[in-house]
């Protein structure tokens, strides 16, 4: 490792912190709109364990989205540090950021965001193409992943021909394309009914156990919160509470 590369990593205590897949240290984000400044984040710090199932909650305007984008490598902090797999994302150029987004993080969206003009298989193959895999290799791998989410038979269907739950499963398959360490899910059950939502939650749970991926979701879905290891509350640009579902006392009865 060159000195320059070494500087990219969280030098101090990096070995003992190796269990953390994401570290956010005093992250602040200021949006400037002409004269006025909006403080979206006012110093948020969080360590995310490898293989953890983390939920982020917060009212709209709390800075939840900003924080979420930050730890997913979609945005850079104004000050403070975000380490993804011990790499300071603020120091990456656009090519390295794209590389990171392609291989380290898988994204799952509330509105599924499958490319409508492509089949499910092509959707799952797309991130592999971006990662430089050749078609044959990618097709084989994509079919394997689709099988894992139970949609192998529908590989050649277009997204529009499928139900919301199925589309979200394809989107999850796509997020797994390059074997990421982290899956970042933005309200993944927000557009689904309770039953399909539950299927998605179970799928996430299974993937976490089978593949050891870290799952971070922004959600208000009580079932999802209940399934997570930790729940992070963001209010007014700060992390105000980190607790387990038990501490938060989420009862099943509240779901219905």
């Amino acid at each position: 490792m060159t000195q320059e590369q070494e500087a990219l990593f969280a030098g101090e205590g990096s070995t003992e912190k190796a269990g953390f897949v994401i570290r956010a240290v005093d992250v602040r984000k200021v949006y400037r709109m002409g004269e006025s400044e909006t403080h979206a984040l006012r110093g948020a710090s969080l360590d995310v364990h490898r293989g953890e199932y983390l939920s982020i909650m917060g009212p709209s305007g709390s800075g939840k989205t900003t924080f979420f984008n930050m730890i997913g490598g979609l945005d850079k902090p104004t000050s403070g540090k975000v380490y993804i797999d011990q790499v300071d994302i603020a120091q990456l150029d656009p090519f390295e950021l794209a590389w990171l987004r392609c291989r380290k993080v898988g994204y799952v969206f509330q509105t599924f965001n499958l490319i409508q003009v492509m089949t499910c298989l092509e959707n799952v193959m797309l991130p592999m193409a971006f990662a430089g895999l050749d078609d044959e290799e990618a097709r084989e791998k994509a079919i394997g992943i689709l099988e894992r989410v139970g949609l192998k038979e529908r590989a050649l269907h277009k997204p529009a021909e499928m139900s919301g739950g199925q589309q979200q499963r394809v989107a999850i398959a796509r997020s797994l394309a390059n074997s990421p360490d982290i899956i970042l899910a933005d309200e993944p059950t927000g557009n689904l009914d309770l039953k399909t939502g539950e299927e998605i939650i179970n799928l996430f749970d299974r993937l976490r156990k089978e593949l050891g991926v870290t799952i971070i979701s922004a959600t208000h879905d009580l079932k999802m919160l209940r399934a997570s290891d930790r729940i992070v509350w963001i209010e007014d640009g700060r992390i105000t509470r980190v607790s387990t579902p038990e501490e938060m006392n989420i009862a099943v009865s509240e779901v219905h």
């Binding site: 979609l74 656009p94 090519f95 794209a98 590389w99 987004r101 392609c102 291989r103 994204y107 969206f109 509105t111 965001n113 490319i115 409508q116 797309l126 991130p127 971006f130 990662a131 796509r174 394309a177 390059n178």
Partner: peptide, 16 residues
Amino acid sequence: FREIGTMKCLGALSQF
């Protein structure tokens, strides 16, 4: 918009 953003999330470069 959303499709382009998604592609970028999946690792597409601006050039692409």
